[in-house]
Design a protein around this nucleic acid. Structure first.
Lengths: 198, 198
DNA sequence: ATTAAAATATACCAATTGGTATATTTTTTT
DNA sequence: AAAAAAATATACCAATTGGTATATTTTAAT
């Protein structure tokens, strides 16, 4: 059974994560947080050591859910190539989806934490590496099953793919125009079908 | 002849711009600024209305210099296609160059200002549109001179190109790994030679 | 050189910052 | 139900925040 503190901690993260994600670390005050959560500082500091620990926990919370969503989405197929298309498909709705999170956590916290918060930045890096590893694993599966050419460098392709998507996310959010995302994903589909086939 | 205030304003922007760019708006205090500039609040507020106006002026200052550098770099050729290659070439050294600016101003301020500072965000958008227009103009010149296929949608290609580059910048900075930039630029060269030729 | 004007420094302000010690309330265990 | 433990609220802290009124200094015009 979950303890009271666990439930409260979870609830705090739910309320706080989008705020940190939207405003950034420095622009989010502990007062903003108590207001959004509806609890006092006593409750917040009882559950989290300090602002930094809270921000890190909030980032991890958001990412955990995001990765879960992607994971569920990829269950629709067992074919590695199809899984890559499903990733592209997932990001079709990402602008809308990520707005509920307060924007893309990887982009927002990545830029925000750079030069500002080493621990937070380290967490962002780990997430990026994890995602890239997962995509690379899918590609390697495809190479093993013969679906994907042995000529393909899995990790390099994965990094290219993720770089493309992050560029699209930045442009889509900054210009508030989904064209950037859609065009990027259209290109990505072409790249997958042109460069991976055996 | 330049007035004292103009010289001082210029000097303040030189010292302040990298700080805002590195730390973001909220994480930069007026105290940070007076320290970096070596002047007191009286001097700062005598030359700039408030923190926001200073941040905007600093962003514009950085971007003005950046665009100038790109413009100079593109003078190396008159051929539109070659100019596109020169843009790619410019971004080969961008990681190093932009570190002196405190990072990429478009990326950093773009993400920082989103949901935080409407005026600052509007300035970022204008810069992005200006750059995209300039690239699109180069492509259209190429179409007119017959160097580039009439099938090419200049604006769309320009947006694709800039989206690719911004993605590379984000990944390069966040992962502190220039591989992302280099790989992206290599791809970009292929795209230019494959998709634009008549 | 004197004066007017412009630029900068100083000293201050109320409000907000992250954080804490302690009191109170709520849960859990017995 | 009573006692112990855990969780939350309250009231406070020193430090910092952006900004300003005014005094002083520096620059430019006469």
């Amino acid at each position: 059974m979950k303890t009271k503190a666990e439930i409260t901690s979870q609830y705090i993260l739910e309320m706080v994560a989008p705020i940190f994600n939207k405003n950034g670390y420095a622009a989010t005050s502990m007062h903003d947080i108590t207001q959004a959560v509806g609890l006092t500082k006593g409750a917040i500091y009882g559950n989290f050591k300090n602002k930094e620990a809270l921000a890190i926990a909030a980032f991890r919370f958001t990412v955990k859910n995001l990765l879960k969503q992607i994971s569920i989405h990829l269950e629709q197929s067992n074919s590695p190539i199809q899984k890559l298309y499903l990733i592209v498909d997932f990001y079709r709705n990402y602008y809308k989806y990520s707005q509920e999170l307060g924007g893309c956590p990887v982009l927002n916290i990545g830029v925000d934490a750079n030069n500002q918060n080493t621990l937070l930045l380290e967490n962002v890096r780990q997430v990026i590496e994890k995602i890239q590893d997962q995509i690379a694993n899918i590609i390697e599966d495809g190479i093993e099953t013969g679906e994907i050419s042995t000529e393909v460098n899995a990790m390099l392709f994965s990094k290219r793919l993720y770089t493309l998507i992050q560029g699209a996310i930045f442009m889509t959010y900054t210009m508030q125009d989904e064209l950037y995302m859609h065009e990027t994903l259209d290109q990505l589909k072409l790249i997958i079908s042109n460069e991976l086939k055996t």
